[in-house]
Design a protein around this nucleic acid. Structure first.
Lengths: 233, 233
DNA sequence: GCGCAACATCGAACGTTGTTCTATCGTATC
DNA sequence: GATACGATAGAACAACGTTCGATGTTGCGC
């Protein structure tokens, strides 16, 4: 059983030179080449140590990813906490959502693991609390507040995961620009039967050369508008 | 290069006894025990054949998952197409979104791969088209229609992925009921400092014994309300 | 009926992954 | 100096996706 083994200090970390190094280097690997790049062997090589040493700090790869996400979420949290305090709680909600979105969209691996992590604790819990506190300033029932905060998280994470996925290799290599890539899809859709796909023809021009951030902001605004309506403001 | 190799008929499938069998059995494996259960060896064993035979139908595991998702999306699509035709396009949008949500929430693997799949084609494209066609009946600009359809997809997929994740083993085994599991989290949150976590205390009662479906519906309603406001109806 | 090409299948092997086992350092404390 | 413990690491294991080479199986021109 893994629980009986002694572990490094969790709550109060003493020296813990390496726990920080492990997490930092793990995040660096994830940022540089995505989730599949984070292997215990690559990580050990970076740290200049053996493979099994990492298991002294984390019990499994799942825990490694858990701690890595919590690590970067700590940075997001401080960024979010320093941006509240507007007159309008909905404005605060928007700023917080955008900050979270920006952090996730550059780290596709974060979105994927953000949703797999059912445990609401640590910095993830704190982030949820920060968002929810803004709903306390709105005229809503507890149930509505619960739903509102959850909905915003879903919109942010869902959109970020949808838009922030790893671009195909030909775009990353620089051989094909982002505009060309979008153009290829647009071209394909333009060749569809207009009678069977009227909507695709309607939006293909908008799609070509669209901005991911704008798309997210528009979706977020729909939710916030609905929320404002619900609060009767 | 993989593209030069001959492949089974894609567009017009002739006999294709086994392609159907491969996909059906792959989906069955995914449904029974989640994504990690789908291995080439387990799948081959189910099909009563060898491991390498599967590579005659799909070039990689990624393609296997692509085809599997497209397979089940086909069922969702027919269910959705038979449910449109209301007076209110927003009512239609809600029904379609709920149908899609229900299909995803019982298949956590679908949500995970739904977002990883950047290729908008096949049944995924048709589904997007069906949703978008409802926005054609609303008084919106093409850009607003593009954003609206994308936002709804994000809300559905994001929420389904968030709520439909695999329950922990102790719940699956039946040793701990869902209510007890929720209760344990509620208990943990009640022990938090009320001054630092006022929101968690506000919603902990709502969380305990909440229904995932209601949570999704509430979030969807916010987006739809914002959309209705935007359309000026 | 024959032969050849394409379809379809399969066992064995390769390289990589997460994980475990066991042995070994270094350093405080008695 | 002996001991216990924090910390490290090499070697091995099982399982995974994938590839290779060989072998059936079918369809069609002659």
């Amino acid at each position: 059983m893994a629980g009986t083994r002694s572990r490094p200090p969790e709550g109060r970390r003493r020296a813990s030179h390496s726990m920080e190094a492990v997490l930092t280097e793990a995040v660096a690997l994830l940022d540089e080449a995505g989730e599949p790049a984070l292997t215990f062997r690559a990580l050990a090589s970076r740290l200049g140590g053996g493979v099994a040493s990492i298991y002294w700090y984390v019990a499994s790869k799942d825990e490694l990813l858990d701690r890595a996400t919590d690590h970067v979420l700590g940075g997001v949290l401080t960024a979010i906490e320093s941006q509240t305090g507007s007159d309008d709680p909905i404005d605060d909600l928007r700023v917080m959502a955008v900050t979270l979105f920006d952090a996730i969209v550059v780290r596709p691996w974060l979105a994927a693991y953000f949703m797999r992590n059912t445990d609401l604790q640590g910095n993830s819990l704190r982030l949820y609390e920060q968002l929810g506190q803004q709903t306390l300033r709105l005229d809503l029932t507890p149930r509505q507040r619960f739903h509102a905060a959850s909905a915003i998280i879903s919109v942010v994470v869902g959109t970020a995961a949808d838009l922030g996925q790893e671009p195909p290799p030909e775009v990353l290599d620089g051989t094909v620009g982002r505009d060309e890539y979008l153009g290829q899809w647009a071209e394909r859709w333009r060749r569809l039967d207009p009678e069977e796909f009227p909507f695709m023809h309607e939006i293909v021009d908008e799609f070509e050369g669209h901005d991911d951030k704008d798309q997210f902001l528009a979706g977020l605004e729909l939710t916030l508008a609905g929320l404002r309506l619900q609060a009767g403001a």
